[in-house]
Simulated scan of single mutants.
Amino acid sequence: MRRSVAVVEPQAEELAVYFYAILFVRYPEVRSLFPENMDVQRDRLLRALLRIVDLVDSPEHLAQFCARLGRDHRKFGAVTAHYGAVGECLLETLARFAGPAWTPEIALAWQRAYGIASETMILAADDDTRLRPAVWNAQIVGHRHLGNALAEVTVATDPAYPYRAGQYVSMETPWRPRVWRHYSPANAPRSDSTLTFHVRHVAGGHVSHALVYRARIGDMLRLGPPEGDMVLSAPSGRDLLLAAGGTGLAPIRALIEQIANDPHRLQGRHVNLFVGARTGNELYGLDEMLRLSQRHHWLTVRAAVSHEHIPGAEGSLPDVIAASGAGAHTEAYLSGPPGMVAAARQVLLRSGLPPAQIHHDPLGVPVLDAPLDPGHPEKEEDNRI
């Protein structure tokens, strides 16, 4: 399987185009499950194939990955019959692009692997159906601009949306049907079942542009099931280090709110919050966190600005964390741009912090890149904040 993927990987773009072309021609009923613009979806196909091959020697982690993928596909409307159609077209596509490297042995290996993966996805989706909806309808009940292309969007769901502070949510908007983007609630669960998201418009981001500039109170969104394991662990006596870059402050803010709502969770521990951005204008939410620290003696807040000279706050977030002297007595939670998270993680590892005490969301497409095994580390990017 690895040999065949190595052969077709240089042809990834053409392979994906061909796969979806024959899938939609043979099974036109599945076209409605996919977004109009297929560019991102084609990349996801290769990611999934590479992840399956990466985990093929670890049945436990392969099953975990496929189960997560199966549960996630419920929100797209995938049903059992679709898996056979996808498998048929996928294997034919791999055979075409692998050429002479596609031996009977490799074909049999892929047939077995796809059969196991699809069966695991189907069973996980069926089990999930008995536990919760595939999606939650969410009405916008609050919308305000925070400046610097940032908006605070509050939604109410019915039924109530079950999640834990620190998790993230996939969201679909009416302006880009079947295009899902991930955002983290900026609040701990509330009794009124509302969730607040902080959304920054990014260049070329059609979903973020709509949520910041087009969305209005009364508009309806759809939310997929909660994901992510960046939730507060059981009290351990260790101090907490929270680091947030940009809108990565949202889930960190939710964790702080959970602690403030349940101070017994601290048990004498201190919380050190580091908020980072490239410029002072991008350093949103700092004033609110500073006010919170004045009300709660257990919270200390420090800012870091990497691309502007601001006395007392100059430096990249990973460098400021390194200078703080955090050691093995710390439990760390990191959220923000992938490069920042990767760099901060390396700083903490070098300081002696065990990997099990460093928590963060996946660095890429969450379902495809969620960590399963320390032996399969995430790709790290040199993109510091």
Rank of each mutant, 00 (worst) to 15 (best):
Y163H: 14
Y163I: 09
A165D: 06
S170R: 09
M171N: 04
M171K: 03
M171F: 04
M171H: 04
T173A: 10
T173K: 00
T173P: 01
T173H: 02
V179E: 13
V179C: 07
V179F: 00
R181E: 12
A186N: 08
N187E: 10
N187K: 07
P189R: 09
S191I: 15
D192A: 13
D192T: 14
S193M: 08
T194Q: 15
T194E: 10
L195S: 09
T196F: 08
V199H: 07
R200Y: 06
A203D: 15
A203N: 13
G204T: 12
G205E: 10
H206G: 05
H209D: 15
L211Q: 06
V212I: 02
V212K: 00
V212T: 10
V212E: 03
A215W: 04
R216P: 02
G218L: 09
D219P: 05
M220W: 04
P225M: 07
P225Q: 08
P225F: 02
P226V: 08
G228Y: 06
M230L: 15
M230W: 09
V231L: 06
S233F: 03
S233A: 15
S233T: 13
A234R: 15
A234D: 12
A234H: 12
G237S: 13
G237L: 10
D239F: 01
L241E: 01
A243T: 09
A244I: 09
G245A: 14
T247D: 04
G248I: 12
A250E: 11
I252K: 06
I252Q: 03
A254N: 11
L255R: 06
I256D: 00
I256W: 00
E257C: 07
E257I: 04
Q258V: 01
H264C: 06
L266I: 06
L266V: 07
Q267D: 15
G268T: 09
R269D: 02
H270C: 05
N272W: 12
N272I: 04
N272G: 00
L273Y: 12
F274E: 01
G276K: 07
G276D: 10
A277R: 01
T279C: 09
N281V: 08
L283A: 06
Y284W: 09
D287H: 12
D287E: 14
E288Y: 01
M289Y: 03
M289D: 00
R291G: 11
R291W: 07
L292S: 12
S293H: 05
R295S: 11
R295Q: 13
H296A: 08
H296L: 04
W298R: 02
W298P: 01
L299Y: 03
